[in-house]
């Protein structure tokens, strides 16, 4: 598989996944861009992995989890450049979904918990694979998810 073929077939899916992780189309774009640049530069290493797609998803997830406050700020500054003629397609749906409560609650979760939720309830991965993507034990995945669900349930009760 070439990098081009990979990007052709997987880029949209990665973007969707990044949107679920970040909750924001701009951040999702930055996240995917940063990851895919690295994928392209290290393509040979990516293809050497057993499952390149899973490998890339893991890269992207790590990138998301590692985004420290510092690099986050730098990222925002970079965005301020009138660089890269990327226009985010804003759907009318955005205005509706901004009022979406579950979405707002998700934004308050720790990143690792949110990633675990996305992997289970959006990507429909079994816990063992989630653990692999997050680089932790299966038990850790389960407890992260149950803690996240407990937080959401509490929000539900309050709302």
């Amino acid at each position: 598989m070439t990098y081009e073929e990979f990007a052709d077939s997987r880029l949209t899916a990665l973007l969707r996944y990044a949107v679920m992780l970040t909750g924001d189309p701009h951040l999702a774009q930055d996240l995917v861009q940063e990851t895919m640049v690295r994928v392209q530069l290290n393509w040979r290493r990516v293809t050497r992995a057993d499952a390149p797609e899973r490998y890339v998803r893991r890269m992207l997830t790590n990138q998301y989890l590692d985004w420290q406050r510092g690099s986050w700020v730098r990222r925002v500054l970079l965005r301020a450049e009138p660089d890269e003629a990327v226009v985010v397609r804003v759907d009318h749906a955005e205005t509706t979904v901004e009022r979406d409560q579950v979405w707002t609650w998700l934004a308050r979760l720790p990143r690792r918990q949110r990633a675990a939720l996305v992997l289970r309830y959006y990507e429909d991965l079994p816990d063992a694979e989630i653990a692999e993507v997050l680089g932790c034990a299966v038990g850790t995945v389960r407890s992260a998810i149950s803690r996240a669900l407990a937080t959401l349930r509490a929000e539900f009760v309050e709302a």
Binding site: T12, R16, P25, A85, V88, D91, A93, V118
Partner: peptide, 21 residues
């Protein structure tokens, strides 16, 4: 699950991103 699916509409266009990458 429903919230995730609803927000798929936020997914940006991959074509310009591909070029930016």
């Amino acid at each position: 699950r429903a919230a995730f699916v609803r927000h798929e509409s936020l997914t940006p266009d991959p074509v310009p991103l591909r070029a930016a990458i």
